[in-house]
Design a protein around this nucleic acid. Sequence first.
DNA 1: GAGACGAACTGAACCGGTTTAGAACGAAAC
DNA 2: GTTTCGTTCTAAACCGGTTCAGTTCGTCTC
Lengths: 359, 359
Amino acid sequence: MATMKRKATINDVARVAGVSKGLVSFALNDRPGVSAETRDRILAVARELDYRPSVSARSLSTRTSYAFGLVIARDPEILGADPFFPSFIAGVERVLTTEGRALVLSVVSDEQHEATVYRTLAADARVDGVFLTDLRHDDPRLALLQELGMPAVTLGRPATSRAQESADPSLTGPSPFPAVVLDDTEGVAALAQHLLDLGHRRIAHVTGPRRMQHATRRGEAFARTLDAAGVASDLVLETDFTAAAGASATDRLLALADAPTAIVYGNDPMAIAGIGIAHERGLRVPDDLSVAGFDDSELARYVYPSLTSVRTDPLSWGESAARMLLRLLAEGHADDIELEPAHVVVRASTGPVRTRATA
Amino acid sequence: MATMKRKATINDVARVAGVSKGLVSFALNDRPGVSAETRDRILAVARELDYRPSVSARSLSTRTSYAFGLVIARDPEILGADPFFPSFIAGVERVLTTEGRALVLSVVSDEQHEATVYRTLAADARVDGVFLTDLRHDDPRLALLQELGMPAVTLGRPATSRAQESADPSLTGPSPFPAVVLDDTEGVAALAQHLLDLGHRRIAHVTGPRRMQHATRRGEAFARTLDAAGVASDLVLETDFTAAAGASATDRLLALADAPTAIVYGNDPMAIAGIGIAHERGLRVPDDLSVAGFDDSELARYVYPSLTSVRTDPLSWGESAARMLLRLLAEGHADDIELEPAHVVVRASTGPVRTRATA
DNA sequence: GAGACGAACTGAACCGGTTTAGAACGAAAC
DNA sequence: GTTTCGTTCTAAACCGGTTCAGTTCGTCTC
């Protein structure tokens, strides 16, 4: 078209509708004090002019950015191997786009830098709230976000730590933020039981970083199940979630005098790397070694042998978290949500224990 | 502290420094018309008050959002398996955080929805520019972004298509946007040559979607190398980049009467799935079948057998793209950048061809 | 010494919304 | 018929920056 039409502003709508711009604002925001007739006229004009309120103008006067933030503190390498975040983000996005909000993403490699990012996000009022993932023990972000007055939703309910219990009573008690909870202990326990049922009595656990709550929570669920069966639960190796670490942990485990007959990993990439190491050492999976992962990434189904894993649903986790954050901002509070718990997906990488020929 | 100190505004700075707020603005933005002495005083006061300009206020008056956008149109499943984006984003972030800009991310599952997202981003002035990844043939986004007047940087130089050449001359010619180019044809050609050198004469190519420029570009480089050696280059299967598609393509290839002795895949997850299928069919890699991937994800080194792949550098791709977009906005134009080309990383999944025992 | 000029600075408009104080007006109350 | 009240609406302030027209003042020119 020849005439470059500028974006219509609230003034244009007011002029055409023959009212003051204040009234247009009222009408558009569904606030009382506007007659039904006038409201309809204003809405009609707005539609006619294809009016869309300016986000920046609105942000300035309401001190609201209409955006949510997600700060991920992980090494890009690990991030790339882990299918969780892309799916989680897709779920978040699915909700936000329909609500006219945007997602501001920050990837920082070290946790030191993390606080700066949150502070900047808050100081610049870039976001109205954030998603807190990868909860850590005594997570400094909880206090930081409270200090900044930044609304947040946590993925999983932060465990009250020893440190918090003994410290300032005002800090004790439930989390200051609502949580979207996806119980993964059930799935982990079921996985442990599955291995026990297969006859395994020497089972190792290659976990993620101990400072992450989900790592220890799963570790405990795992150990509990083994203990209940009278099986030792001491074979635990901590890693940083990289395939490299998974491989190295596997190497160490298989070099032991009483090497495990089954290894459970904190994520799928490590498990896949573990299978690789087993093969390299001439072991067959699952005949000589059972292997299981966590997250049930797409690849799990297609590696050889196909990988037993624990399935979570990051997509609906993202959806729920986004909806919860919206509710928190709209109503000032939100109740915790429990999602469908994780469950085991048994595939070919786990099988009955066999006494080694060489044993 | 007891006194809740509100954020300092430009008015506070002006008042304390004893000047008008206009002058403060000039001083802070390094514009002429401020004496050195006054400038120093203003800057000192600003630092003293811990003044940070309000992004929303600035956005409103400058019509600039100080944010860049990345719209990814991929199924979350594929996204999760593909290590490219997390690394790319980390690279982008590395540059943006030091520049006080944010990254607005959008994940859409279908390409239909894509245009809406770009239009919304533009209409709401959420971002000042965008990164264009996964360039397609006759990519509708190029025209769309031009129409929207949205600055952009492309990953890879868009190939001038047949359609464009024959159409409106104004559309022909070089891309309207600067590009960060990472030549992957060289690496693909080297990979093909590597397989030829190993004696393979029946080599298949499992590519990504044909509508993606990088898929066809690599396909051509691959075919050219085979053709030059007098080897047939007709074994090409198109997939959607999922491990599932990689597995199914492998199944079909290995069922052929004259099955390939080597298969090259468009990404690592497909290649890993391919190895799985080969194993399932009782073939050994690389003895019976050589396999190679693309992207050289972390996992490639740790699967069994370790995967020959082509290494790109998404992290520095992200850094360069971010810097280029900044320059484009600051100076109105930016020259294309050529990054270090991709190169083959030979591992254990490719080996000399062996005539099959059953052949 | 008058005029021109440039540097330093001020005041106000402006970006496009929201919000509040208060005006106008009709209806109900007494 | 006046007072009171509630509804509908307007005008203007406000959010916190940028920008532009114009004022002030010192210096240079002839």
